[in-house]
Amino acid sequence: MTTDAPLDQRLADLLREVLADPAAQVRGVRQLSGGASRETWAFELVPGSGAARTLVLRRDPPLAPRPELMALEARATEAAAAAGVPEPAIVASGSDPDVLGAPFIISKFVPGETLARRILRDDAYAQIRPHLAAQCGDLLARIHSVPLDSVPGLASADPLQRSREGLDTLGWSSPTLELALRWLERTRPPASGHAMVHGDFRNGNLIVGPEGVRAVLDWEVVHAGDPMEDLGWLCVRAWRFGSDLPVGGFGTREQLFEAYAQTSGTKVDPEVVRWWEVLGTMRWGIGCMVQAERHLRGTTRSVELAAIGRRVCEQEYDVLLVLDELLGEAT
């Protein structure tokens, strides 16, 4: 196996060895998405005998490998699967750049819809939509039930500290995000626990079929922290895609909290989740700045990244909607 062989050949070499199938072939390698953080590819595996199946390769950009993170992601998804969270089965994973050029995970392809707008509008999902918030509550409770010592390497950072550093480093001078941070510091609730937190559990990172959630994707920011972070993030207005329903655009907070309480045995305090929602909104605002800076600094020139810079004001607006409402309730 040579390191400069084409990707389909290297995939075939790897899978022949992993699957102990010397006649296996790889066809139709195609890139689904790429970027500075992670590449996604799909391809067909044709075994020596039996039907072809689609597999998905996620790989670090060869120039920006993060081997520890990829290994952590594999451990976290397997632990979540063991807790009853639907995950695409991992076929092979590794951190050795000699194999596929960069750290990678190969998993089975799960058919279904990830585009939030389709999940929220298409007739195919009309039956399941009213049940999705409760399903998410159940899945989050399962993720948070994973014993922390079964996933070594989960980092834990103070989210307010990280946002402070983010705002200071970026220097975009947003009075609204500064207000959000000030408000969050002054109203911080006591921790609700310490658990494995998915970190990006939202409409868009779920594969949904007409019968419900088929897989939870994108564990790139999995960490140890307050479990209410995941609930607040799922309620952030940006993930509602124009719908009036607060949870991912498909459900109510009551549905989410009730299902979470039922599976976890822990009652949810809506005010605490609200605090995490404001934090999530602020963080996504900072995230938009970070993405736009990648374009502006020339790291990755892209009209998409440039456009995201003008979404900061959406997050500022959302922070103010919540603060306006909370101030109204207080008077």
């Binding site: 979404r311 004001c313 959406e314 103010l320 603060l323 101030l327």
Partner: peptide, 15 residues
Amino acid sequence: VTSLRQDAVARVLVA
């Protein structure tokens, strides 16, 4: 909050 919201609305009206 009232002032910042008016400001944010003006920006979202463009964005």
